[in-house]
């Protein structure tokens, strides 16, 4: 019915990995909100040395935003903070592996926005709109 809702997307959205809250110590905690659809996402990271050793997230959103965060959380564990900073929109879209229509791109990128704003410690992280 829809190229977007492949099995792996449904799997990650219905059984999200690293879902929940992280026990202390939490090094980075970040909440993002998409006012267009009401999606809300909180991501928590533990950093030991310069390596991300644990990630949890919670909140609510559509299958695309949940699956993206689930996949991203798996990819982040074991990476250094610098490596997490290097993660791009393309990396995330590769992980999802499905065609994302322009209107749904915001859903997919909510997780990356939260993670990037968190690791950079900035109030808002914006992917270049022209890309």
């Amino acid at each position: 019915m829809d190229a977007m809702y492949r099995e792996h997307i449904l799997d990650h959205s219905q059984n999200p990995r690293n879902y929940g809250t992280l026990d202390e110590p939490v090094t980075i905690r970040r909440e993002e909100y998409n006012p267009l659809c009401g999606d809300r996402l909180t991501v928590e990271m533990r950093v030991e040395g310069d390596t991300v050793t644990a990630v949890r997230f919670h909140g609510h959103g559509c299958a695309i935003s949940q699956a993206a965060m689930s996949m991203l959380s798996e990819a982040m564990v074991g990476k250094t903070v610098d490596e997490v900073k290097q993660l791009s929109k393309e990396d995330l879209l590769d992980m999802l592996g499905i065609p994302i229509s322009p209107v749904r791109l915001k859903c997919a990128l909510l997780s990356l926005k939260a993670v990037k704003a968190g690791v950079y410690g900035v109030p808002e992280w914006a992917e270049d709109e022209d890309e």
């Binding site: 019915m1 829809d2 977007m4 809702y5 006012p35 267009l36 659809c37 009401g38 609510h60 959103g61 559509c62 299958a63 695309i64 229509s101 749904r104 859903c107």
Partner: peptide, 22 residues
């Protein structure tokens, strides 16, 4: 069990235009 945005995307695949959101 289905977020309204996912629903609207899937309906669109069948040519059905509905709104999802706030």
């Amino acid at each position: 069990g289905i977020h309204p945005h996912d629903l609207a995307s899937m309906l669109d695949q069948r040519g059905v235009a509905v709104r999802a959101g706030q």
